[in-house]
Design a protein around this nucleic acid. Structure first.
Lengths: 117, 117
DNA sequence: TGATATATATCGGTCATCGTAGTATCTTCA
DNA sequence: TGAAGATACTACGATGACCGATATATATCA
């Protein structure tokens, strides 16, 4: 149950699961929709992340189902996982607000005279 | 000038520079203050990040100065760097808001009867 | 004199993610 | 009929940002 790092793809996986249990392929689709297709969750990233998240008790296997001859393995957020997602989101929001505030003081470099046609 | 990834420490470095040029050690101190000492920027991380950021034109060397017999090398955000920080902050804010909204539907698991004293 | 603060340099190791390939089933359509 | 594409999971080497530790040097303070 060691500490794991939550980067962008893992954050989106947790966020995808926040509205209810989903199987792997559904998570890929959900992340695509959530990000307006700006993020493509790679399957290699997904399944290794799910393994880590399960290992560290942020996510648990919720059950399996065979649909049309294909296996679906469902994953669900644990209470710990929901808490971790909330903490992470809060941290990101604070860092973001702070950066925008600091940028408020930003003065762009003056354009160079004659530097363009 | 290839694409570089901005994780938490690098985000804070850019944010530290958003209020004006700073030398390396000052960046370490600033990040400590900005994060209320929740983040310790490692010097190895700092200098390798500054090299990457300079390489990709998000940051530039602003000048050097010797104070009390010690070298200070100043770094400044470029216009490109300020734009990258703003973009990144905006992205984080959106992902964060979305996660919090999705968690709004979250229902904690019912406590098990008799699971505690 | 020895510890702490200031300031930068270097480098092996870790680990989340990328990128790609593989296996298998079902549907669609020419 | 058979090729293409969507669905669904597995596996693995490479990449790169960051960690953690060490090194060097000067100034300050107890």
């Amino acid at each position: 149950m060691a500490h794991i790092e939550i980067r962008e793809p893992t954050f989106y996986i947790l966020s995808a699961l926040a509205t209810g249990p989903k199987h792997g392929y559904a998570i890929v689709k959900e992340v695509g929709e959530m990000s307006h297709d700006r993020i493509t969750l790679r399957v290699g990233t997904l399944y290794s992340a799910l393994e880590r998240l399960t290992e560290s008790n942020l996510v648990r296997i919720h059950g399996e189902e065979v649909v049309d001859g294909r296996l679906r393995r469902y994953y669900a957020l644990t209470d710990t996982g929901a808490g971790a997602l909330r903490d992470e989101a809060t941290k990101l929001a604070a860092a973001s607000r702070q950066a925008i505030a600091r940028l408020g003081t930003w003065t762009p470099s003056p354009a160079l005279r004659g530097a363009w046609a």
